[in-house]
Design a protein around this nucleic acid. Structure first.
Lengths: 205, 205
DNA sequence: GTCTATATAGGGATAGAC
DNA sequence: GTCTATCCCTATATAGAC
């Protein structure tokens, strides 16, 4: 990290590793494949990362960091609570759409796919969840949002969005052939926003 | 299958394999571990299944079959469309809650976690999805359900529910400490039903 | 049908030259 | 910092006795 000359290759390794880990999971990923795609020899990887596990950790950390940044930024945006909500959802969908492999890795991690020795720093994810659910709870206190379980809502959204971009292309290829197309992303965005807004809009009875 | 004497051990292998595959994924699963838990030697597994891949296929097939049965049954239940919807959602949540490992396997499969040579019979899952989305589309035609994208809704529900029982316990352990408790299942059921009903209830404007 | 013993391959990791 | 060569372990799978 201190040596700028190393950055180039190191970053390329991280990028390729993210793709491989997303596609095949931790145990299914072959260091040989990563090296090959980067254009170096397998042994050269060990110059940058001490082990497969360390490489995995680096990839995960990078992904979590960017996600947190994005969420904080969206929650600080201007407008009404529903405006903020919308901004957040749009940004989140965009993020997942832009990094489906990363999403797969995080999803897989919650399924237990990780090095045996891995102790997930779940404080990260928990902190993120709390950030958003607190935002919703605030809105409920002000009677702007309907009194639905905030934690469940947030978890459900995360699962839903992740599923759209990771599993849906496999399960329902005819529905969204290409989840990277602008049209597909817009469609999913609209859907998510509609469902969430309906869930959070107070009864007008 | 023809030899009844074989059924006992074979079924136990399938059950144990489901648990292991769910917990560690295909590549992370060790045949040695399965054999050990069944109480036999690793080599004995090959008497029942020709390869690790065949064992995997058997586990997946069994899981898909039961899921399809359940969905068909729920859709044939009595009552209004909203009644049927409710019955379906409750049964589905119960199924996932009862078989979290199975759910993990199917989730993982959509993420690309499977033997290299594996050609997923996605016709199965596509057929299932179509079954439910057709039901919703029918309700929309009759103006009972709001005109939301049926495919997206169904995929979203599947992702949401799966996430609750597989990832949420890891991500938010304080939220639902034990997703197998009756109370937790009831809570999740209520949440899912509320979100879906709100999404499908036509505007009263 | 279950066992012990073993074959075979693949993959993570290291050694050491350049 | 990248390479070639190699170590070494683990995991799937097979052979063949009982």
């Amino acid at each position: 990290m201190r040596d700028p000359a190393e950055r180039g290759t190191r970053d390329r390794i991280l990028a390729v590793a993210e793709a491989s880990l997303g596609a095949h999971g931790y145990h299914g990923t072959r260091l040989h494949e990563i090296a090959s795609r980067v254009g170096i020899q397998k042994a050269s990887l060990f110059h940058y990362f001490a082990s497969k596990e360390q490489l995995y950790r680096a990839v995960v950390e990078q992904g979590m960091g960017e996600t947190e940044q994005l969420i904080r930024h969206a929650l600080e945006s201007a407008g009404s609570l529903f405006d903020k909500l919308r901004t957040l959802l749009e940004a989140y969908v965009d993020l997942v759409a832009l990094h489906p492999e990363r999403t797969k890795i995080l999803l897989r991690q919650t399924l237990g796919d990780a090095p045996e020795s891995y102790q997930p720093a779940d404080s990260d994810s928990e902190r993120l969840l709390k950030l958003v659910s607190t935002f919703i709870r605030e809105g409920q206190r002000k009677r702007v949002f309907a009194p639905i379980d905030p934690q469940a809502l947030v978890l459900g959204i995360v699962g839903m969005v992740a599923f759209f971009f990771t599993s849906a292309p496999v399960l329902a290829p005819h529905w969204v052939a290409n989840t990277t197309s602008a049209a597909a992303i817009a469609q999913i965005k609209r859907h998510v926003i509609e469902v969430v807004e309906r869930a959070l809009t107070p009864e007008r009875a």
